[in-house]
Amino acid sequence: MPHQVSVFAENKPGKIERITKVLSANGVNIRAITISDSGDYGIIKLLLDRPAEGCELLAKEGIAATLKDIVAVKMKDAPGGLHGIASILSANSINVEDAYGFMVKSHEDAVFVFQVTSPQKAEKILKDEGLTILTDKELYFL
């Protein structure tokens, strides 16, 4: 199962810079980043090519970072691509807690990444519907 790194950060200038400095110095590549903010603090979510290592590097710097299980599912970079996935999740009453998507190859492939309470179950349901679930290696080195 793939992981992303979630980082606790105060909502202040220089916070992303501190994180990217550590990662860049150690040659860890950021594949995607999102930030959810709650006023004076937020959570920065990073999709890294080496998440376990990246997380450890950040923790060593005293940064509150943790690994989170995620589900990554391949979709068409075309209208309705996400709708197909969302319909399946909805039909199975799976609530998406946090999500983002990114394009892999223009007008061909895209990836939908999300967090749910039981990722194994979500992976299985999507797989059974014929969708391609990305393994950690596949996702990190897309």
């Binding site: 979630s6 606790f8 959810s36 709650s38 603090y41 937020g42 959570i43 979510k45 923790a59 005293g62 940064i63 509150a64 970072a65 943790t66 989170k68 946090d98």
Partner: peptide, 15 residues
């Protein structure tokens, strides 16, 4: 200060 080991990446938990 948040204690690092008690951070689970969950916004609701923080709230």
């Amino acid at each position: 200060e948040l204690y690092s080991k008690m951070f689970h990446g969950d916004m609701k938990e923080l709230q």
